[in-house]
Design a protein around this nucleic acid. Structure first.
Length: 620
DNA sequence: GCGATCAGAT
DNA sequence: CACATCTGATCGC
């Protein structure tokens, strides 16, 4: 669960994923995805009143997040205040008023956590800051995210506000989404093929994120999954076509307050029975996170937990090694973990991050010595020491070399609002104290950076740049899964990414049921889900500035050619071409002058990312 | 009566 | 196997 307090040190006038307390005063809001623990205060009366009186406050989120949010009547009052792009990669031109006006370009990056989930990359005078929200990216995915790069280099990232849910060596490895999906498919297929009375209940929690499971199962078995409601997907036809409210199907993901009891009594949560009265044969599959230690060779993705109950591996969050890979690639100067697991103090978490950093340091040292790259190493050290650092922060170089965090220091400063003992009054004194000490202490110096030396060759965004369908697919669907292989999203390009025999996990840990499951499954990850058919009215806001990524068009064109998309995706892309995609800036802002713009663009590493021109191609 | 918060359960 | 949500109890306004 996120313990992030809502604000980033570098850009404190915006709030992300928190809308209560001091966040009520934010100039702009960002919602990374539509999970309740990231929506605290979002339906609060305070904010509602603020919206009523303010003409400038907006909530920025992805299109899908907007749809999901507005499908809940409790959040419907946000409708006129949401700014969402039709595409993943877009730029908001923010004028943030605090100590000065500020140009900030915000880019939405795929997060792979649930439909609509994104990370926010802020680029402005306070540095490039990445807020990950919750994310699940596979190893290697960062290199495929175009907007983390400028040209062939990885952008310099000042800080990462990190989803550290599994940032713990215990969660070293979590089977990839594809592997998990294969296991579930196999189990489902073997069951429902036995007779029409054999049905599966997917015991999913009440949260977005299982949709790609539904779509893939629906696709593979040419059926629809029974769910409680379709309303939230009404603008997402590729999801819509795989779910139904018709109970006459063999795969159910419906819920009921007493569904566990129902299941024990051999009933589905929806109460569905066979027309002829024949008792149904129901198995339950409960998606849950499974992890494996570094040395563990077990890779069971399905565990039998009862006579007809199974647990299936499924994770919304990146594993330890995936997070490590992510950080090692980005090499941010600072890392702020946003999740402090229950039972673990902030200090422990920070120390853990430190430990990782030290290990990296050590590893690199050895590596460097072995390969006689000392020169590079010292050059890099020098870079760290010399690197220009933000104001109001302790010298990061100094700190990074002594990354010790003491309990008292850590706990008393709640910039991230991470500690449980955090029910202090919101006095101003405290605020100031935070400012003075907290920031430095909360700085987890990330010498992951050291790996830069080793990985400098890898700094370019791979020969296959990120393809929009990798992540755009309802932001979730099969997204980034197999990073090493290419896109796994298009129906045609999927099969190559199927598991090889050696990678095939044992399906069951319980032997009694593991006999007859040996079919080969042709996993077809469905094509893009997301059809973002409508644009909101925001482009008509009076004081909006629309920035269009210029080169994006051509790049997408290239991508389309080298990537043989199935028809559906081509059509989708084309439909997106036609839909103007206007991304308003913060309404308080003014239209920048050309020279201002030029300056802004210079701030972007390459200048490729933000250009005012209506794009002519399906953009990402 | 409403919202915030917490414990507990799933 | 640690994910996110819901329910119910309690407290304060």
């Amino acid at each position: 669960m996120s313990s992030f307090a809502g604000r980033m040190k570098e850009y404190p006038t915006v709030s992300l994923d928190r809308f209560d307390r001091e966040n009520v005063h934010a100039r702009a809001y960002f919602l990374s995805h539509c999970h309740k623990d990231h929506m605290k205060g979002l339906k609060g009366p305070l904010l509602k009143r603020k919206l009523h009186f303010s003409r400038t406050v907006r909530l920025y989120c992805s299109f899908v997040t907007k749809e999901l949010l507005l499908s809940n009547p409790k959040y419907a009052f946000w409708e006129d205040y949401i700014v969402s792009p039709l595409h993943y990669y877009f730029h908001i031109h923010l004028f943030v008023f605090v100590w000065q006006k500020e140009d900030v370009v915000v880019t939405l990056l795929p997060a792979g956590h649930c439909p609509g989930s994104v990370m926010f990359l802020f680029e402005g005078s306070q540095g490039n800051v990445l807020y990950t929200g919750d994310f699940r990216l596979a190893i290697g995915d960062a290199s495929r995210i175009e907007h983390l790069h400028s040209g062939s280099r990885v952008k310099d990232i000042q800080s990462v506000y990190l989803d550290s849910t599994f940032y713990d060596p215990r969660f070293y490895k979590i089977p990839t989404r594809e592997v998990c999906l294969n296991g579930i498919s196999e189990l489902v297929g073997n069951w429902i093929s036995q007779s029409s009375y054999h049905v599966v209940w997917l015991n999913c929690k009440a949260a977005y994120g299982y949709e790609y499971l539904f779509t893939n199962l629906g696709e593979q078995f040419n059926t629809q999954i029974h769910v409680k409601s379709l309303a939230m997907f009404k603008k997402m036809p590729e999801i819509l076509s795989y779910v139904t409210t018709d109970r006459k199907t063999q795969i159910h993901a419906c819920r009921h307050p007493k569904d566990e009891e129902f299941f024990q009594g051999n009933r589905l949560p929806c109460g569905c029975t066979a027309p002829d009265g024949t008792p149904l044969r129901i198995i339950s599959i409960k998606p849950s996170t499974m992890w494996f230690g570094e040395r563990s060779k077990k890779t069971n993705v399905i565990i039998k937990t009862g006579a007809s109950s199974f647990r299936a591996c499924f994770s919304f969050h990146s594993s330890y090694s995936e997070i490590k890979d992510f950080l090692s690639y980005l090499k941010p100067a600072n890392v702020y973990p946003s999740v402090i697991p229950i039972g673990q103090t902030l200090t422990e978490k920070l120390i853990m991050v430190d430990t990782f950093i030290k290990l990296i340091l050590k590893y690199n040292l050895m590596f460097l010595i072995m390969f006689s790259k000392q020169i590079l190493f010292f050059f890099f050290l020098w870079n760290i020491v010399k690197s220009p650092q933000k104001t109001a922060l302790p010298d990061p170089a100094e700190e990074s070399l002594q990354p010790t965090v003491t309990e008292s220091q850590t706990v008393s400063h709640n910039y991230l609002d991470c500690t449980e003992s955090n029910d202090e009054e919101e006095g101003e004194e405290e605020e100031e104290e935070e400012e003075e000490e907290g920031q430095g202490d909360m700085n987890v110096k990330n010498e992951v950076i050291m790996e830069a030396v080793e990985k400098s060759e890898n700094k370019c965004p791979s020969s296959n740049p990120p393809k929009w369908q990798d992540f755009f697919t309802t932001e979730m669907l099969s997204d980034s899964q197999n990073s090493q292989s290419q896109s796994c999203c298009s129906a045609q390009s999927t099969s190559p990414s199927r598991m090889t025999g050696s990678q095939t996990p044992e399906l069951f840990s319980d032997e009694e049921e593991s006999t007859d499951i040996n079919e080969n499954f042709s996993l077809t990850l469905s094509a893009s889900l997301s059809n973002h058919s409508s644009q909101n009215q925001d482009s008509s806001l009076p004081d909006t500035l629309i920035l269009h990524p210029e080169q994006r068009g051509q790049e997408k064109e290239d991508m389309k050619e080298e990537n043989d998309q199935p028809e559906m995706e081509k059509e989708l892309s084309e439909s997106q071409v036609s839909s103007d995609f206007d991304v308003p800036c913060t309404p308080e802002s003014q239209m920048p002058r050309p020279d201002e713009l030029a300056q802004l663009y210079r701030k972007l590493a390459s200048g490729e990312d933000a250009v005012i021109r209506k794009e002519s191609q399906g953009s990402v």
